[in-house]
Amino acid sequence: MTERNEGVVGRQPGRRAQGELEAAVLTALRSASRPVTAAYVQERLGQGLAYTTVVTILTRLQAKGAVARQRAGRAFEWTAVADEAGLAALRMRRLLDAEADRETVLARFVTALLPDDEKLLRGLLAQQPEDAQG
């Protein structure tokens, strides 16, 4: 008899969903009152994460524009510049930037929204100054 993985298809038991660890790192950074080291983040996250894993996540978040770092002696100190919603927005923007036909992608995105989400999006767009709309 074989065991079945009752979790998410394609995910190993005990593994985090994509973006879950990034969100946890952002939460740890945002809860700090000052820039902090990767060791600080590792300690706050617990869960037996390797230091190198934390540094990798911080570096990926920096590449996405979600965190900033500054030299502090031989190490870096990290600061969140985006929250979880900002990180999701950065992901959406990166996906859009990868597409050749932006107009079609945006049109399909809007038509796939639930009515309340579409109404919310239209309201947010209406609030933007004319020069910001592009």
Results as ranks from 00 to 15, higher is better:
residue 132 A to H: 10
residue 102 R to F: 11
residue 70 Q to G: 05
residue 78 W to N: 00
residue 63 A to E: 01
residue 32 A to L: 13
residue 86 G to W: 01
residue 36 V to R: 04
residue 64 K to G: 07
residue 59 T to D: 01
residue 64 K to I: 05
residue 91 R to K: 15
residue 95 L to C: 09
residue 85 A to W: 11
residue 81 V to R: 02
residue 21 L to F: 06
residue 113 L to M: 12
residue 131 D to A: 14
residue 29 L to M: 07
residue 91 R to I: 03
residue 14 G to M: 01
residue 64 K to P: 06
residue 63 A to K: 04
residue 79 T to R: 02
residue 17 A to K: 11
residue 41 V to K: 04
residue 68 A to F: 02
residue 69 R to N: 03
residue 78 W to K: 01
residue 15 R to V: 10
residue 90 L to E: 00
residue 102 R to A: 11
residue 101 D to K: 03
residue 92 M to Q: 09
residue 76 F to E: 03
residue 13 P to G: 04
residue 73 G to W: 14
residue 10 G to N: 06
residue 131 D to Y: 09
residue 125 L to N: 07
residue 100 A to F: 06
residue 8 V to S: 13
residue 124 L to C: 08
residue 113 L to S: 02
residue 92 M to D: 09
residue 22 E to V: 00
residue 53 T to P: 01
residue 66 A to F: 00
residue 75 A to Q: 11
residue 111 T to M: 10
residue 105 V to S: 00
residue 1 M to E: 09
residue 66 A to R: 03
residue 18 Q to G: 15
residue 101 D to C: 01
residue 37 T to S: 03
residue 118 E to M: 14
residue 11 R to I: 12
residue 2 T to N: 14
residue 69 R to L: 02
residue 95 L to Y: 10
residue 128 Q to K: 15
residue 81 V to P: 00
residue 41 V to Y: 02
residue 82 A to D: 05
residue 69 R to A: 00
residue 25 V to R: 02
residue 14 G to S: 06
residue 96 L to M: 13
residue 46 G to K: 04
residue 103 E to W: 11
residue 8 V to D: 10
residue 106 L to Y: 06
residue 128 Q to L: 15
residue 131 D to H: 14
residue 78 W to S: 00
residue 125 L to V: 13
residue 88 A to P: 01
residue 93 R to S: 11
residue 14 G to E: 07
residue 91 R to E: 09
residue 3 E to D: 15
residue 134 G to F: 07
residue 65 G to L: 06
residue 114 L to V: 07
residue 100 A to C: 06
residue 3 E to P: 08
residue 29 L to Y: 06
residue 83 D to Q: 10
residue 57 I to Y: 03
residue 15 R to F: 12
residue 70 Q to N: 03
residue 9 V to G: 11
residue 29 L to K: 00
residue 38 A to E: 06
residue 118 E to Y: 11
residue 6 E to Y: 15
residue 110 V to C: 14
residue 32 A to C: 07
residue 3 E to W: 13
residue 52 T to G: 08
residue 40 Y to S: 06
residue 105 V to H: 05
residue 116 D to H: 09
residue 37 T to I: 04
residue 103 E to H: 10
residue 88 A to W: 02
residue 128 Q to W: 15
residue 51 Y to I: 08
residue 51 Y to F: 13
residue 10 G to E: 09
residue 59 T to C: 00
residue 83 D to I: 08
residue 61 L to E: 04
residue 77 E to T: 12
residue 32 A to M: 13
residue 1 M to W: 07
residue 131 D to K: 13
residue 114 L to W: 07
residue 42 Q to H: 06
residue 56 T to C: 11
residue 110 V to S: 12
residue 130 E to P: 07
residue 65 G to Y: 02
residue 107 A to E: 12
residue 64 K to R: 15
residue 54 V to A: 04
residue 16 R to S: 14
residue 28 A to V: 04
residue 116 D to L: 14
residue 48 G to N: 08
residue 83 D to R: 12
residue 35 P to D: 02
residue 121 L to S: 05
